[in-house]
Write a protein that binds this DNA or RNA. Structure first.
Lengths: 203, 203, 203, 203
DNA sequence: CATGAATGAGTATTCATTCAT
DNA sequence: CATGAATGAATACTCATTCAT
């Protein structure tokens, strides 16, 4: 692939990321992607076979970037609590930086098995990264624990995406909150009424 | 509204719920909705101004049902721990019963401010319902706590939606897991390495 | 099918006949067909599933008309020689009246198995009509004879299609010529040099 | 034109003959022609100005070959009856050998006046070749006679093109049949009912 | 001469919505 | 109220042709 080709390939991905991200799959036109990338309509098809394939490529690049950055940050610290904090910060800041592009995940093409499969694989990889951290602490049910942690982070990110007032400091605060809640549970913040929580089962 | 009208109104909503739920917004045709509802295409427009409005109505009915049922179940118990369990069970079983209709939430129409606003309002109402429970326990940061709990439940429901093997017993197990994790935190399941977690780190 | 529907169905076929006939399949646009039929583009698709299906319908209507008219004319006479003349006149005049629409046969869509099959069936039916006439005269090899006769007529029609000067009288003359040549052979018009033609085989 | 150029020119014509012949004009892509000729897409345009011109060149080469071979074979015999047999055999075997390439004639580009003119000129030349033979026998109406003969041959070749079972022996049989029918007419194979055919009816 | 990356005109088809009956 | 025939805007994708290298 020549240097010019790389440039164009990347330019198309960038343009598509912007448009798919802010408008969703169905409301983004290939002609707009071409225009924003500064090339002709037909040229897009030299690099991506179809609109769906382009969407897949955009999604894949974004997800891979998410995981790669996460792995890098995790390697930089050793204590499990630090790692959990790193995960929270990464999750929230990643979306904080992309708050304009929420549609990439919410407005995907329907009924595309390849995309569904890829997203499932991405979620699995993300979960396993968290599982790996939890196993260092000898967690039981690490997969459910990992999913729960990701769930907390994913919900706490929502205001980031939709609240225009949201600031970086808020993201940071939420990251810390998430990590602490996950570790210590709500017990710490709740009064003694909880003291009698049946630890084994709520039957 | 006459009784026949009520019937038709409901028939359309039922048909649309099935189709939007299993095919998503963009891949569902108004003509299909009419056909499944057993009426003529034009008649749909006597009851709903547009496809988007119909989607809104379907979503609203579903969300309202979710909240109403939840309120009912919460009124039936008094201890906060019971209520948290009830929330978890409700969340997971509600989706368990609707596992065929995942597209209703994942494949919504793009760029519809009204829908976005409604979903935000629904989330707020759901969150407040949880907040109300948490406040009985005197929680600090009850909103973030509520969101986190919902986040856990929402993530744990994912496998329910996408794993065809998922059984009712699994849903039950996950509900119990979620409630306990939320209350006691991961600490209980992790070894002493966590003992030195800086509980006040976010200060 | 309501009367209005019949009208529209026929109007589309008429418009398509004109355009496919003069421009061929590939160079005729569905929007042109709609415009000439005085309806909206989408309406064409209420009556014909696709451009290819419309082309098929036009072709079928034309071929069926050809055969039906021929059968009618053949029933009106009894002597075999009369029938052969009738065939010749029908073939040449049919194309004479349609000289503006040659493309219907020459510019058909490529690789459409259904169309190929239909044309083969039409040719078979036409041939059998001629065979039936020839069998009254006790012909041997009636199928090859019929094909040959049709071949003569088809070639003699070519100038009709392409020579703008061609007049009705010329068509009539050619019809008579064809019938006589077919019956008596070239021998009558050629001098004695042919006398020694080896009637059984040219080996 | 250098030797390499000649090679390439011929390679393109060969490739185009294969593809136009089996797929027709509209469904053959210039990129496929280039690929099959083993050269780059742009190079085709160094030798042929456009797709239509290439199609013309392919057609012309094929038609010229047809006529040249025919002239050669005709020079090799002297009796008129022999020559008529030679024409029949040539026509049928020429297509027999090219049965894979039927689309070259049936799927020509629409509305190309140059091609229409060339085909008319080819037909004229072919007809004149037959006329020349017939004139040796002192035929009246030699042009109509020639066209008729060609018409018989052209129709009898149809099964050759479309019937996969067709064998060389069948082609030979048809050639003999055509020559004899043309010379002696159907009269020989029909019973006395034809005896009263009004030979001068067209006067 | 040869290349092949880039171009952009061109078109069949769908489907939400309307409105005459 | 109900119908469904008619509408027409909207868009992905192809491929002949060009031209900088």
């Amino acid at each position: 692939m020549s240097s010019a080709s790389v440039d164009k390939h990347a330019a198309i991905l960038d343009a598509a990321y912007e448009l798919f991200g802010s408008g969703g799959f169905y409301e983004t036109k290939m002609s707009e992607v071409a225009e924003r990338a500064g090339i002709a309509k037909g040229t897009v098809y030299l690099y991506f076979k179809s609109k769906e394939e382009l969407f897949m490529a955009v999604t894949r690049r974004d997800c891979e970037g998410f995981l790669e950055q996460l792995e890098g940050k995790l390697r930089a610290c050793s204590a499990m609590t630090d790692k959990l904090s790193v995960i929270a910060e990464h999750h929230l800041f990643y979306y904080y930086e992309r708050k304009q592009h929420t549609k990439l995940f919410f407005r995907a093409p329907n009924n595309n098995p390849e995309l569904v499969a890829y997203m499932a694989q991405f979620m699995e990889a993300y979960m396993q990264a968290v599982v790996k951290v939890l196993l260092e602490g000898g967690a039981t049910e690490p997969e459910l624990m990992a999913q729960s942690y990701i769930g907390i982070l994913d919900r706490l990110k929502m205001d980031i995406l939709f609240d225009p007032e949201f600031a970086e400091a808020d993201a940071d605060k939420r990251a810390k909150f998430a990590a602490r809640l996950f570790i210590t549970g709500a017990l710490g913040s709740l009064d003694s009424a909880l003291g009698d929580f049946p630890a084994e089962a709520e039957s």
